[in-house]
């Protein structure tokens, strides 16, 4: 146990010393994905804007026309898409990096941070799209928005742990790539991304209270839609992150040397 943790911290500290590697590689990745396109990475802003814009401006009914619902959906989708994308691409992380893992001695956490960095850069573009929608919908800005910052930081902090857990899952159980893909697709409907929970009984109640993603979403969204500091959501998210990190460290410590034989 102690040995596992010290192994994990060794891997992480080596990776942090090599921070220039994953920063450079993440930039190359983003560049490669958009090479030869005219808009380049701005496509990510366009994608988000088109999707959420379509949703809010086409599906709005009379009660949903109010700007606070638009903000609700826009922020919900921002956070949901971020977590969804991170988890979905994490499952195949080690398979995708196979040639590096089998050819260099870089610590595994370098690949984790490379993906984290990539996801954060993409999310920054989506976030620009989100702010644009908030402004266009006539939703005024105010100081309460700052209460969202701790939630955003917590999500970024949780990202490497999500990546580690799902990357190991994908390496040990290749079937999980498809299972996780399906679950995330269905998960959107079980998470209050575009539906509002207002005390109903039944499935929605459980989906609201027992879904960890609810709290990730609410800790960013509540300050903007309700103007309050999201104490409860932050607390739950915080505990969830601690648990996730503990699991991630354990996996990294125990199994990092096995990965090269599995991919």
């Amino acid at each position: 146990m102690i040995a596992a943790l010290s192994g994990a911290f060794d891997d992480i500290s080596k990776a942090i010393r090599l921070h220039r590697v994953w920063i450079a590689l993440a930039h190359e990745d983003i560049g490669d994905q958009h090479r030869r396109t005219t808009l380049g990475p701005l496509w990510m802003l366009v994608n988000y804007f088109a999707f959420v814009g379509t949703f809010v401006f086409v599906f709005v009914t009379k009660d949903a026309i109010n700007p606070s619902y638009i903000a609700y959906v826009a922020i919900g989708m921002l956070v949901w898409f971020y977590l969804n994308e991170t988890i979905s691409v994490s499952v195949s992380l080690f398979q995708r990096e196979a040639s590096f893992i089998q050819g260099t001695t870089l610590p595994l956490f370098v690949y984790v941070m490379r993906l984290t960095m990539q996801c954060v850069i993409r999310a920054a573009y989506s976030m620009a799209g989100c702010v644009l929608i908030l402004l266009l919908s006539g939703y005024g800005t105010n100081m309460n928005w700052l209460f969202s910052v701790p939630g955003l930081l917590l999500i970024i902090l949780a990202t490497p742990a999500f990546v580690v857990v799902f990357a190991f899952l994908g390496a040990f159980f290749p079937d999980s790539e498809f299972i996780v893909g399906n679950m995330m697709r269905v998960g959107m409907f079980f998470t209050p991304v575009f539906w509002v929970y207002s005390g109903q009984e039944g499935v929605q109640k459980y989906a609201y209270h027992w879904n960890p993603f609810t709290y990730f979403l609410e800790s960013v969204r509540e300050p903007i839609t309700a103007g309050t500091f999201p104490m409860h959501a932050l607390a739950v998210t915080g505990y969830f992150c601690l648990g996730l990190w503990a699991l991630a460290l354990l996996l990294l410590g125990l199994y990092r040397k096995r990965i090269v034989f599995l991919i």
């Binding site: 190359e28 490669d32 040639s99 050819g103 260099t104």
Partner: peptide, 10 residues
Amino acid sequence: FNISIGFRPE
């Protein structure tokens, strides 16, 4: 090991 390891084609 392998010429292309660690090299990015683009």
